[in-house]
Design a protein around this nucleic acid. Structure first.
Lengths: 156, 156
DNA sequence: CAATCCCCGACTGGTTTAGTCGTATTTTAG
DNA sequence: CTAAAATACGACTAAACCAGTCGGGGATTG
């Protein structure tokens, strides 16, 4: 539960890469995929989605590539995730979506909605610039996490 | 992304039900499943997991059922979710888990970890009692949420 | 005109999840 | 003492979802 999809992960890595490597230079899909060992075709789709969502600008042609469409501090992590995985929803019956039959009798909608707001805040308040502020390549941090795992993320 | 599994949802609904219907009375799987229209066998598994995790006490026999093992304010939403879906992890390479090959070069681990901490806080700070504080049956709240959806949840 | 890039949709295989089924064990009412 | 009502547990199925792949375009530039 609460897991980020790989695609969203890739998206964030790419956004950080683009933020760090200057807003001047355009980076190609291939360059980024090699830098982080991401399958090219998959990353390509991710970058295309980000471009379609307006978070990146693309330039075709021999020296083309992608650039951030806005300054890094003005792009939130939430935006990136939503561009890839769609709206952030915590439950099946998110808000209006009447696709929950049983949820007419559901008793936890409102409290969960409050929690969701806090999560969305956390994601909205951190920007791509914040990602880039950390060391370019993160240092290893280690814990133990055995067995089943609930994930926090964009819901793959 | 960020979606809660149905099972986790059911777990929270059941926990609230048990919190509201007094810590005195034991509620059976059947009673809860009927109250919220949840498939009995599925709910049964969920409740058994909660019991095994120590969040519920169970009593077999003709007038058996489940009760909260602790006062509702002392049971966090995070505990419930983790009992069902396992540890809250945001990324594949959560903390120690070296199961990410490429993530040796990953550049967003640390910043994401910080975000994860905020999310875990949000989930740890709300208790089952908070869930129960809302109206027993939540009032309809409506937004629009079209198309793809990122989910906030226990990661499955 | 050819290389290098972006663009887009369709497809496949594996994993996960929701939900089911069957069987055993415990408790209690009669 | 036995039948009913519960929990306990594990194996199974079907559907959804996701990661990753493939193939065919179109744009830009040397």
């Amino acid at each position: 539960m609460l897991r980020l999809s790989k695609r969203a992960d890739y998206a964030l890595m790419a956004m950080k890469h683009l933020a760090v490597n200057g807003p001047l230079r355009a980076a190609s899909t291939r360059e980024i995929s090699q830098a982080y060992d991401i399958p090219v075709e998959l990353l390509a789709k991710v970058l295309q989605r980000l471009a379609r969502a307006g978070l990146l600008t693309s330039q075709q042609g021999i020296h083309g590539g992608y650039q951030l469409s806005r300054p890094a501090p003005q792009i939130s992590v939430a935006e990136v995730i939503e561009a890839i995985d769609g709206p952030l929803t915590m439950t099946a019956c998110s808000e209006v979506d009447e696709s929950c039959d049983q949820y007419s009798r559901c008793n936890v909608r409102d409290p969960l909605w409050r929690i969701k707001k806090r999560i969305v805040s956390a994601l909205s308040e951190s920007s791509v610039a914040d990602l880039a502020a950390d060391s370019a390549v993160s240092s290893p941090v280690m814990f133990h996490s055995p067995g089943r795992e609930a994930t926090v993320g964009t819901g793959q």
